[in-house]
Write a protein that binds this DNA or RNA. Structure first.
Lengths: 192, 192
DNA sequence: CGAGCGCTTGATTGAGTTCAAAAATCGTGG
DNA sequence: CCACGATTTTTGAACTCAATCAAGCGCTCG
């Protein structure tokens, strides 16, 4: 059940089986059905999540009622509302399940234990934050400088398998396009 | 000279004058003229900077040769290429001076000293990273959901004094507009 | 099996770009 | 301090990418 998480740690850090067995009793697996909402705007995010199977997403709803997807989190991805989590402020976006999903939910006290049992994990998680920052910077620049077609091509290049699982309208929302426009872009690309 | 930095610390942390005097000999003030480049794409960023007076900026140059401004850093702001700094990877963007500027340049070893002398500074700097992440998220959402006019209004609301110091074309670059478009937006707003 | 959702296609509109050129401002050297 | 060249800003006109509005199709799932 939680093996994907252990595999994740094994391939990225030097961890012993003893360390992993110490972590095991502290881990809480949660299951949610497609469409279920895990965090609403205005609530305080209490934990960061690691997806074991399925897929979560975070998104905002703008003043005109349109959704804009911030992040997808398929297997082996982390997702949380970092600001809310670290500062205990109300969340700026929603998190929900776009497939039936099982995930590990980790509150700050678990993370402290993780860092105690696997000291290497702390700098690793700090790196993860930096990576997240980088990906937002890249996306911002892409939004500032590239056409819809270029952004779509970059997306399927970066997330080839994920792109196959997602409905068109969600990819469009992530890329800042309407579903109609993305449909036309695809058609255009299909005919060379 | 370095008083602005000490004031910055005094207003945000609980620091004694003794602690500050311990920091003083470790601080390096640098001066640069308008237009001078501090970091180029591909170089490794060695330090994070705190602006004492003047203004720095970071930006990328896209495949069509157009500049896109990532961040402005006037007095009391930090600027660095975080990814390059933390991971020792080549920088993704440029940093240069848009006014004659004096700033403190802090390498990792200085930061270690800072955290030793003022322990409260470490979580504070972590918070700063989270804040940076939040601001990029906000900007991305703004880019995905708002018109040029809305983004401009939000910009002058958020940075009213900075907006007066910056040339129009730089604000346009930051907002993802051409100078022509921003000029028209201003004209439109001026006539109510 | 039908209602709703997601995707496609068409026609039209519109925000913002591009290209061009004039007007205003800035900075620097004489 | 003024003059001149360079840069920045403004304005105009044509164009373009993507949004909007509208309709129809196909699938799923309740």
């Amino acid at each position: 059940m939680i093996e994907p998480f252990f595999d994740y740690l094994r391939t990225r850090l030097t961890v012993t089986e003893t360390q992993l067995s110490q972590l095991e009793p502290l881990l809480k697996v949660k299951q949610v059905k497609k469409g279920q909402i895990l965090l609403r705007v205005g609530e305080v995010c209490q934990y960061t999540s690691f997806v074991l199977s399925g897929c979560l997403r975070s998104y905002v709803i703008d003043t005109k009622g349109r959704e804009h997807i911030i992040q997808f989190a398929p297997e082996n991805w982390w997702i949380s509302e970092q600001i809310s989590l670290y500062k205990k402020e109300p969340a700026m976006y929603f998190i929900d399940a776009i497939e039936d999903t099982s995930f590990l939910s980790m509150d700050p006290s678990f993370l402290e234990s993780l860092y105690r049992i696997v000291p290497e994990a702390r700098p690793f998680m700090d790196q993860a934050l930096i990576n997240s920052l980088r990906s937002f910077q890249k996306r911002l620049v892409s939004q500032l400088s590239e056409s819809g077609e270029q952004r779509y091509l970059a997306f399927i290049r970066t997330y080839p398998t994920l792109a196959l699982r997602l409905p068109l309208w969600m990819i469009a929302s992530y890329l800042g396009l309407t579903p109609e426009s993305l449909s036309r872009i695809r058609k255009e690309l299909a005919g060379r």
